[in-house]
Design a protein around this nucleic acid. Structure first.
Length: 265
DNA sequence: TTCGGAACGA
DNA sequence: TCGTTCCGAA
């Protein structure tokens, strides 16, 4: 009962577009995960949980199957998929929520800031738990700050076009640390890396890297609407768990194969 | 269950 | 580069 274009999401389009991958290559796993997360049809296999970008893979086998279908790798399984996921740790795209099975967490600060370096997040005090990191009114917006450590990266890992990159770190000064979700059993330790970079002072490395202030609007329009479908973002009731509001979909008992058909050449 | 090295491919 | 495959270790 809902269009394939989806309209309830509240995450920047670029995050879902393969084009946002470096070099416009194949779809990347974290894109795919986000894609699954976006649609509630797949909430039986993967869904948001906790705060900012935390998600749990409820059905590892199914997620792996879906991923395998997308990549034409029938032999895909969770063991292999999770290996790919683990590579994201170093890149700080993802990290593991320790103690919780099949639970990972996105570093939206990193992901978003890399693409939107000039967003205003200095006032990220009373950020709502489900703050969608998307410029709703094409103006400045703020999104949940995370640990101050996800903003380091000794080298640029994920940047799409290569226009802006390092500037992001300068802005990303999340003051809030640790996860404030109810399940903060052990919380996530961001290693000593976080304090490392902070103590050193980012300015040192990026003294002359700041570009000549670009218009904010242009930055938010790097990735225009996908198929020309402009969604007015209908008011969907935000999930209590999901960091971003998602619109319900899929009839009960539908098969995932229909939602995510194999795209093999 | 999770981690990460290693070899390999596109 | 970003996985995929395999695998030993914790």
């Amino acid at each position: 009962m809902k269009t394939p274009g989806d309209s309830g999401f509240a995450f920047p389009e670029w995050a879902y577009k393969p084009e946002s991958s470096p070099g416009s290559r194949q779809i990347q796993l974290w894109h795919f995960i986000l894609e699954l997360l976006r649609k509630e049809e797949c909430h039986d296999v993967i869904a948001w949980q906790g705060d900012y970008g935390e998600f749990v893979i409820k059905d590892p086998d199914e997620v792996a199957r879906l991923w395998g279908a997308r990549k034409c790798k029938p032999q895909m399984n969770y063991d292999k998929l999770s290996r790919a996921l683990r590579y994201y740790y170093n890149k700080r795209i993802l990290h593991k929520t320790k103690g919780k099975r099949f639970t990972y967490k996105f570093n939206f600060n990193k992901l978003v800031l890399v693409n939107y370096p000039f967003i205003d997040m200095g006032t990220g005090r009373g950020v709502p738990q489900s703050a969608p990191p998307v410029p709703t009114g094409s103006s400045h917006f703020r999104f949940p700050p995370s640990t101050p450590s996800d903003v380091l990266s000794s080298s640029e890992e994920l940047r799409s076009p290569g226009m802006f990159s390092s500037v992001a770190r300068r802005m990303a000064r999340g003051s809030v640390s640790d996860c404030s979700d109810g399940t903060s059993t052990n919380s996530e330790l961001e290693e000593g890396l976080g304090a490392d970079e902070r103590g050193g002072g980012p300015e040192r490395a990026f003294r002359g890297l700041l570009p000549h202030r670009m218009p904010h609007d242009s930055l938010f329009r790097i990735y225009p609407n996908p198929g020309g479908l402009s969604r007015p973002a209908p008011r969907v009731h935000p999930d209590s768990m999901s960091p971003f509001p998602v619109s319900p979909c899929l009839a009960p008992g539908a098969s995932w194969a229909k939602i995510c058909p194999p795209l093999c050449p």
